[in-house]
């Protein structure tokens, strides 16, 4: 007796990797230490690179191997290393608590992720490279990253949220445009490097002005 509509082995593996990326995003929501958050981002980037490599192997798209290696070097090694260096200068350890408690944040993120899941599912996008579920999951990653950016009140979490949002976007691009020219993908990755520089400057200036990484004090423009 077999179950109803089990996906093929390749689809199952790809979906599972996509779900792991989403779970890591949820873990970022509850990580209390800044370093832990950066580490989670590095792991998430690693998993996204693995997904690229799996697609390359399973669907025979050799240029995705290059993308996997480049994105691993950029997002799992260089970017986390840069953020950790900035953190060492700032000498802050603990991210302030979010607006909500962790359990409520997770429940809220589940609702948001569900919204992402089902809206994308109704769009009826199909790709011949990855199953459509991976697209829905990638969309959920983007939305949960937004929740992370909105709910956390420290610059580092917001920056990490932004970078992991980029992870979600690159997963979307793997699904809908796996054959995208490599030069475009690499251009996106260097875009990310620019974002890291900008966030680095933001973190330094913010830390220099308020002596903390929290954004709670930023109320001067409030009416």
């Amino acid at each position: 007796m077999t179950g109803t509509g089990a996906p093929t082995l390749f689809d199952g593996v790809a979906n599972t990797i996509a779900v792991v990326v989403l779970l890591l995003e949820f873990l970022m929501l509850r990580a209390a230490m800044l370093r832990a958050q950066v580490r989670l981002y590095a792991i998430q980037s690693l998993v996204v690179s693995v997904l690229a490599a799996v697609v390359a192997a399973g669907r025979d798209v050799p240029e995705l191997y290059v993308l996997a290696v480049v994105s691993f070097l950029m997002k799992a090694v260089i970017v986390p290393w840069l953020i950790l260096r900035l953190l060492r200068d700032a000498s802050a350890e603990i991210a302030g608590s979010g607006v909500l408690s962790v359990a409520s944040e997770v429940l809220l993120a589940i609702v948001v992720a569900a919204f992402g899941f089902f809206t994308v599912n109704t769009l009826d996008i199909h790709s011949d490279v990855l199953p459509a579920t991976a697209l829905s999951v990638a969309f959920a990653v983007v939305l949960v990253a937004f929740v992370l950016i909105i709910m956390r009140r420290d610059v580092v979490s917001q920056a990490v949220g932004f970078f992991s949002l980029e992870n979600g976007v690159s997963m979307v691009s793997l699904v809908v445009a796996a054959g995208m020219p490599l030069i475009l993908e690499v251009a996106f990755l260097f875009d990310l490097l620019v974002a890291v520089v900008v966030f680095g400057v933001l973190m330094r200036v913010h830390h220099g002005r308020t002596r903390s990484l929290s954004t709670i004090e930023l109320t001067r423009l409030r009416g």
Binding site: G5, P7, D11, N15, V19, A113, A114, F117, F118, N121, P131, A132, T133, A134, S136, V137
Partner: peptide, 8 residues
Amino acid sequence: FTLYLGGG
């Protein structure tokens, strides 16, 4: 969710 999306 993944089951409902057909990919579970």
